[in-house]
Design a protein around this nucleic acid. Structure first.
Lengths: 218, 218
DNA sequence: AATAATTTTTAGATTAATCTAAAAATATAA
DNA sequence: TTATATTTTTAGATTAATCTAAAAATTATT
């Protein structure tokens, strides 16, 4: 079954908005995430339901069918592998690759993406630490915890982000908060929820907002 | 000025159908090359003329404006660089890359394509011997001559093809008629216009049809 | 449980790209 | 040079994706 770029973006959006597999996703949430209107979403949901990519009951939101989930993961796989390519081979920064990957993810060829995977030596994560599904859609969800939930004196390695905006990523880069960096949580300031963490022998302060969006492997 | 995939395919088609810059291209020729109908072409020509990519006079065919030519060459540049990438880095065969490059050529980013160009070490030709325009749209047209126009005892190097169908390319590959291969024209058979050529100490026969589509640098 | 607020869907348009069929213009041939 | 053939354009529909405005359904609140 052929899918248009638009359909693929809807499937991806529904996937990303599902906290777990069974929970239904709202029309409005999809509309917001795709910068479109609820009426447009309803139209597309009917179409995706016809094609058996989603389970759709009027007014009740949607869930992905196994077929829809497979397709969504295939697109996410492509997105993340292209991101690795852009960063590893073409020297893009991690804050520059998202929009390009949004285009590249829609290139329709499993052979191409599997060759790319091989060329990149089967990376397990993308430049933001997000896991890359293998050709069968399987991937490990690493157990990452936001700094905001960690206790003082915890030692860990920066391994992912919850927020992918270029502004946030550039800030992290500038501050040395890059993937793989070891840090220690020193203390939380009660007043505003900000944190003092130590990184490379220095103590630095990060806001609660940053702490919530920086993921650590312990 | 943003261009849709469709508009880009029209520009590319018009470029490829212009034997030289001044000569107008017919509506029907475009329709045939894009597998569409003349009525659809007329509609699109009006649009491209509005956007100042082409000079269009009703019933008189079209030529590219400098802007249209620039855009066409930019797409061709992308197409050919992606083909090099697919062959050199992802181990595709020269008969497998066309359709993929048709998709990849529409990725909108000059930065990406310039980085790719650099990564590939600024190739001058694609896997079929076609020249790759540089970032300013400049390229050398190599002087290539079809075997069918060469005299006996001419020695030359296979450097391009006039026909890009996978069937033809696979045949060439199987027969050892690959880019860079040195050959000598031995004789032409008057009866059917076929040729006997020598390649790696062996004499082989190729049809007139093949001889017309195999380009040689002398 | 009735009312208010919110969410979602329907109805009816719009735009880009396409089509078929018919009309108009151009090119070719008697 | 008139008639015929071919090419191109116009007219009017169609499809995918979108929109606004209004109606319907669901959820929240008194």
């Amino acid at each position: 079954m052929i899918t248009s770029f638009t359909e693929e973006n809807y499937l991806k959006s529904i996937y990303h908005l599902s906290p777990d597999e069974g929970t239904a996703v709202n029309t409005n949430a999809i509309a917001e995430s795709l910068n479109t209107k609820a009426a447009s979403v309803t139209d597309m949901l009917k179409k995706l339901a016809d094609k058996e990519f989603i389970n759709y009951i009027k007014y009740q939101g949607v869930t992905l069918t196994p077929l829809g989930r497979e397709r969504a993961l295939n697109i996410i796989r492509k997105h993340r592998l292209w991101e690795v390519f852009l960063v590893e081979k073409l020297n893009f920064k991690w804050d520059e690759v998202h929009d390009l990957a949004e285009e590249l993810e829609h290139i329709h060829s499993d052979l191409l993406i599997n060759r790319l995977d091989e060329f990149l030596e089967f990376p397990k994560t993308d430049p933001h630490g997000d896991p890359i599904p293998d050709k069968n859609g399987k991937f490990n969800v690493p157990e990452l915890i936001p700094i905001s939930k960690l206790k003082n004196e915890t030692l860990g390695i920066i391994s992912g982000v919850r927020e992918h905006s270029p502004l946030f990523l550039k800030y992290l880069e500038k501050t040395g908060l890059v993937l793989g960096q070891e840090i220690t949580i020193k203390e939380q300031i009660e007043f505003d929820g900000s944190f003092i963490i130590s990184i490379k022998e220095n103590d630095i302060m990060i806001s609660r907002e940053v702490a919530k969006n920086l993921l650590i492997a312990i």
